[in-house]
Amino acid sequence: MSSAAPHQRMLGAAVVGRLPGLGCAPLALERGERGLFLLWCAYAGLLAFGALLLWRAGAWHRLLDADPTGLTLVIALLFIGCTAWAGRRAWVLGEQRLALDRWIATRTPGASGDWSHEYRSGCAPAGADRATWLQVLGERAHGPHEMAWWLNGIQLKLGLLGKVIGFSILALQLGQVQTFDASMSGQLLKSLTGGLGIALLTTVTGLTGNILLGLQLMRLDRFADALIADAIASAAPPQETPDGDRPHGA
């Protein structure tokens, strides 16, 4: 049901989709009040703690110094921006979940901006085009995720671009070698490892960002799927009786 299915064929998302539990329906914690957002906060906290440990170990400085192309920094900034967006999206989906649960429990209609209430209102008139309203509901729940999945793939592509650039630099440096002298081997190896370092570091950074962001987007998609399913169930018309227009017992 997720509109991001074509994007999940990418390497990072394919790995994420096979991790235990991530392709399942929303967990009990996610279904609780603000559960999805709180789960994202915990995940973001782990990421921030890991980034702090890397900074204290000096890994970030060495990573940026070893990549003169700046692609590693671009990938990191893109990941941070998308992660912040995922947190905001988790809050929005949680608000919609609360409104839907309120309707299911008390039949209290939500305020303006309630996607499920909009869907129920559109399907209520006789002869309403339920398919069109279902598409609208799907766009509300899944539409913004398309750009996030695209940016998630861009991280991977930037990493591969860094690999191409790194190996191109390596090939150019090898092409400039006229003669090989044992006394020059140290300097030669130092110059060659520069291009190799760019290729490896950008690729690793792109893959890591792709997988870690895919974890977040996968759970957002599954939560949105469950939201759509419950919204459809809440708007389902009552079953007709055998007589067609009279309730049971009449």
Rank of each mutant, 00 (worst) to 15 (best):
G58H: 06
W85T: 00
A126C: 00
L158C: 02
A111I: 09
A86D: 01
L53Q: 15
Q135T: 14
A76Y: 09
I165Y: 04
G166Q: 02
I154T: 11
R140K: 12
G94C: 08
C123E: 02
L78H: 10
L52F: 13
L158P: 00
L47M: 07
I104G: 10
E118W: 07
L78S: 02
G122H: 03
K163Y: 09
R56P: 03
Y43A: 13
V92W: 12
G113N: 09
P144G: 03
A124P: 02
L100Y: 07
A124I: 00
T108I: 13
H117Y: 10
R120Q: 03
W103K: 06
W91I: 04
R97W: 05
Q135P: 03
Q96A: 03
R89Y: 01
A99T: 11
P68G: 06
P68Q: 12
L39T: 08
W150H: 14
F167H: 06
D114V: 13
L47R: 06
G127I: 01
L134Y: 06
A90S: 14
L156T: 07
G50H: 11
G113C: 12
E95V: 04
A51M: 11
L71F: 07
W149E: 09
L46R: 15
L156C: 11
G94I: 07
L151W: 06
A126Y: 08
R102P: 00
Y43L: 14
R97H: 12
L98I: 12
S116D: 08
W55P: 13
G162T: 02
Q135E: 15
A111T: 15
S168Q: 14
L156S: 09
H61S: 13
R62V: 04
A57Q: 12
G94T: 08
A99M: 08
H61Q: 14
L98A: 15
R140A: 04
V164C: 13
L47K: 07
L160S: 05
D67K: 05
D101A: 10
G45E: 11
W150E: 10
G45S: 05
P109A: 08
R130A: 06
G94S: 12
G94W: 01
G87V: 02
L170W: 04
A59T: 02
G162F: 02
C123K: 07
G58T: 04
W40Q: 04
G162P: 01
